[in-house]
């Protein structure tokens, strides 16, 4: 987005001009700008875990196949 590129340039200039307000590495920082995703809260539904109602938006699956009922050798027919 053009807007973001202009913003990045502006910030680079500030980092250089006010160098004594920022650490040495500031002028070497890589920058990424993300639009605030207002729908983020609506899309993600919390997943419930544990006995204390801990919530997360990520899950993990089991480390091995639970059963072997799907016949992969037949998939090429």
């Amino acid at each position: 987005m053009e807007n973001n590129e202009i913003l990045k340039k502006k910030i680079s200039e500030i980092l250089k001009k006010d160098s004594d307000k920022f650490p040495f590495i500031a002028q070497l920082w890589e920058m990424e700008i993300y639009e605030k995703n207002l729908n983020h809260e609506k899309i993600e539904k919390d997943l419930n875990y544990g006995h204390f109602n801990t919530k997360s938006y990520k899950s993990t699956y089991f480390y091995k196949p639970i059963s072997k009922i799907i016949d992969f050798s037949k998939l090429n027919e």
């Binding site: 072997k68 009922i69 799907i70 992969f72 037949k74």
Partner: peptide, 18 residues
């Protein structure tokens, strides 16, 4: 999948995908 899994006897496959 085309496979008609109509009961548990289909289980027990050994295949490198597993």
């Amino acid at each position: 999948v085309k496979q008609e899994i109509n009961d548990e006897s289909h289980c027990g496959i050994v295949h490198h995908n597993y």
